[in-house]
Design a binder for these strands. Sequence first.
DNA 1: GCGTGATTACTCGGATACAAGATGTCCGAGTTTGAGCGG
DNA 2: CCGCTCAAACTCGGACATCTTGTATCCGAGTAATCACGC
Lengths: 134, 134
Amino acid sequence: MKFSKATDYALHTMLMLAVDETGKPVGVQQLADKQGVSPTYLSKILTKLAKAGMVESASGAGGGYRLTRRKEDVSFLDIIHAIEGTSSLFDCGLEHGEECLIQKVMLEAERRMEQQLKQTKLVDLVKEMKVAAK
Amino acid sequence: MKFSKATDYALHTMLMLAVDETGKPVGVQQLADKQGVSPTYLSKILTKLAKAGMVESASGAGGGYRLTRRKEDVSFLDIIHAIEGTSSLFDCGLEHGEECLIQKVMLEAERRMEQQLKQTKLVDLVKEMKVAAK
DNA sequence: GCGTGATTACTCGGATACAAGATGTCCGAGTTTGAGCGG
DNA sequence: CCGCTCAAACTCGGACATCTTGTATCCGAGTAATCACGC
């Protein structure tokens, strides 16, 4: 029960893209270097983000990745769901007739966490970073 | 990023022990049957719960497990921590000078979930079950 | 009736097997940019 | 100066290799209750 490193990379990558102001695509190489990951692996993660429609790729020389959606609209939860999947964290494997009370409690707890992650957008962190940089 | 089945078993097991009124130890065999798990595996989980001090074992014939703490005092979080460990769900592997803003957001989200899990006690479910049984 | 020993019903812990998922690498193929070169 | 070709710099996707973790089983050892037997 831990978030995967892939999620870690994805979040940091998205943040880097959000910080970038140029509008030009950023190369995988560059993104990978800053995080100390191999470019090949990171490109896998980016493929997932692309399939989720959060990012688009430009191939060829000078190519790379760029956000498709506005950074005001991309939440942490979106990114996490793109990498980890959207299924709930807890499954009650038992088949005791009625609905499982334990399951209900767990889902409610999960919902609280997701609520927090959904309301935090990329732009929030970008702003914080600019403030700190002053 | 999912809760393990072991956690599922642990929660259900603890609930069964909490429901039991006799005060006599309940055998692993019996607990395992109700959940469709092998007794050997379940005993492993119970060992963890025992080390966490939530449960005590009585060996020999007629032996089994029994709660040590009052069911008013045992929260979901206690049980989950006993099985999954207490380390946080997210680690920022990067070493970017300052503290990681992403990490902060993730920890806050996790904290929300844990707060919910901490305030839900075994006794709450026991009561609900009794109401439903009427 | 009473102690003593054997049997039975349990838990305990370690060692081991197995499977799945996370992590990471390699390679071949397609695409765009830009430079070089010839007309 | 224009257009063509070619090389370089990229991404894309699949196929592997590896490592860790979760899941599960097996077995030998210890322990308590119960039963049987002999005194």
